[in-house]
Write a protein that binds this DNA or RNA. Structure first.
Length: 221
DNA sequence: CCAGACGTTGTT
DNA sequence: GTCTGG
DNA sequence: CCAGACGTTGTT
DNA sequence: GTCTGG
């Protein structure tokens, strides 16, 4: 699955990597420990072009009576995404990319949890496949998102049996294209990334607490 | 028809 | 055990 | 995801 | 809003 990740590159690097020309965001606070319920950066196509914006991680469907449900909806399973009423519509109409430099997964051995940091071997930045929603109760309006997960590839399966979907660079434009609405076409973008492209190593359990957020979390044990 | 849930993960 | 907070 | 709280009353 | 269960 995916419940914690990093994004420490500057906005300019993100814009360059994803080909964004227009952005309301000037700078991003580097984070080495982004947790659910926090604000994340996302790329959304507004019908004309791709834009950078901020979303709360933890999807709140527009029909929710309150925002608590967002604590649970941090991931969406790729395998069942077209069947779930909470995700179905967003999958067709409200897809996004969530830029990251890496993500954490916990490996459980004899009841003990060991966090690992997973990154791409090549270019640092990549985009998670995400869904977003707009929710309002008349007083406040919240834009929120979920990260799509799939089965682990060979390398990841040693650590955990699920992992986030990382959209292939050459498929990013199509993933964001609002004109593409065929579920079968869209599902083709949700395959596990190749093991060859990834690297992983154990990191300090300091990452367990979302209150910890410093560069040292990236260090190999 | 109405009522009630709407999610994923890991663990047992 | 379950929910909230980060 | 993991960590940490989990409650009401009355009084200041 | 939309789907599932009764």
């Amino acid at each position: 699955m995916c419940g914690r990740f990093t994004l420490f590159d500057q906005i300019k690097a993100i814009q360059k990597r994803f080909g964004i020309n227009v952005s309301k965001l000037d700078e991003a606070t580097p984070s080495f420990n982004i947790a659910p319920s926090q604000s994340v950066i996302a790329i959304i196509n507004d019908g004309e072009r791709n834009r950078l914006g901020q979303l709360r991680w933890g999807l709140i469907p527009f029909w929710a009576k309150d925002t608590k449900i967002g604590y649970k909806m941090i991931n969406a399973r790729a395998e069942t995404i077209t069947e779930k009423s909470s995700f179905k519509h967003a999958f067709i109409r409200r897809r996004c990319l969530i830029p990251a430099n890496g993500f954490y997964e916990w490996k459980t051995v004899n009841g003990q949890k060991q966090p690992y940091l997973i990154q791409l071997k090549g270019e640092g930045l990549f985009g998670f496949a995400g869904l977003w929603e707009k929710w309002t109760d008349g007083e406040e309006t919240i834009f929120s998102c979920a990260i799509i997960t799939t089965e682990a590839n060979e390398m990841m399966s040693d650590i955990h049996h699920r992992m986030p979907v990382i959209v292939k660079k050459e498929e990013e434009a199509s993933w964001l294209d609002p004109n593409i609405q065929d579920p079968n076409t869209l599902k083709q973008f949700l395959l596990p990334i190749d093991s060859d492209e990834m690297k992983a190593y154990a990191v300090s359990a300091d990452v367990n607490s979302a209150k910890n957020n410093h560069e040292g979390l990236l260090n190999s044990l």
